[in-house]
């Protein structure tokens, strides 16, 4: 009598591809083509919703940083913008990457002030460079174009203690990843590490642009909340 052989049971607890990402209360189905594949609309939406949840839960941290160095409205404004984006995504249910980032863009351009619209123009480049799917190459192009747009419109240079201090190193990291043909999720990991380093580096800087510039040296020792939000954004892309 021959006992049929079964494949050995896998004992891994939580391989990254088995992480359950809730989307509308249901687990996201396994990624077709594996996590090395380019990002499709479903995964970009999951990436966005992960970031949105992070902002909703931790906007107080951003507000506190901004209270110390700016006028204290950044966390509130960002929260309002991601809420708007979530609502637009619910309403429009975009079927491609460009559509997901377009909904995000419009929500941010619908907020007043300066950081919201600047982020909107940054996300707009992700919409422009993302078609049906988003590759490492597309991400690198989007991050570079987004950085250029934010610098052109906002006038901030590297080291001015703004969101640019996270956007610029992330764009460099994505360019390196594209050159080395790194899969997209790994590339987002590299972007996250670069953005997080950049955000941490703003702690020692004196603000020269944005609201924090009005308080001068008082802002030293405080991480720029805009730069931190950019690091959060890339971080949530590493788990889709």
């Amino acid at each position: 009598m021959v006992t049929p052989r079964r494949p050995p049971r896998r004992t891994t607890v939580a391989a990254p591809e088995r992480l359950e990402l809730l989307q509308d209360g249901t687990p996201v189905p396994p990624v077709r083509g594996g996590r090395a594949a380019d990002l499709d609309a479903t995964r970009v939406r999951a990436w966005w919703l992960g970031f949105s949840e992070q902002v909703r839960h931790r906007s107080e941290e951003l507000t506190e940083l901004d209270r110390l160095a700016g006028d204290g409205d950044f966390g509130h404004n960002l929260r309002a913008a991601v809420r708007g984006a979530d609502a637009r995504l619910d309403r429009t249910r975009p079927g491609d990457v460009a559509g997901v980032f377009d909904a995000v863009t419009l929500a941010f351009l619908d907020t007043g002030g300066t950081s919201g619209p600047l982020l909107g123009m940054w996300f707009r480049e992700f919409s422009r460079h993302g078609g049906q799917t988003l590759s490492t190459e597309g991400l690198a192009d989007a991050a570079r174009a987004g950085l250029d747009t934010v610098q052109r419109l906002g006038g901030a240079q590297l080291g001015d203690k703004t969101m640019v201090d996270a956007m610029a190193p992330a764009a460099d990291a994505l360019r390196d990843a594209a050159t080395a043909s790194v899969p997209v999720v790994a590339a987002l990991g590299a972007a996250y590490r670069a953005a997080a380093d950049g955000a941490r580096g703003t702690e020692g800087l004196r603000a020269r642009r944005g609201r924090a510039s009005y308080v001068g040296d008082v802002a030293r020792g405080v991480v720029d909340p805009g730069a931190l939000a950019i690091a959060w954004f890339f971080e949530r892309g590493t788990v889709v």
């Binding site: 419009l106 351009l109 619908d110 907020t111 007043g112 002030g113 619209p117 909107g120």
Partner: peptide, 12 residues
């Protein structure tokens, strides 16, 4: 018009 003493949004 924006909110009181606040710029209108780019979309407006």
């Amino acid at each position: 018009p924006g909110r009181v003493f606040t710029s209108p949004t780019a979309l407006q």
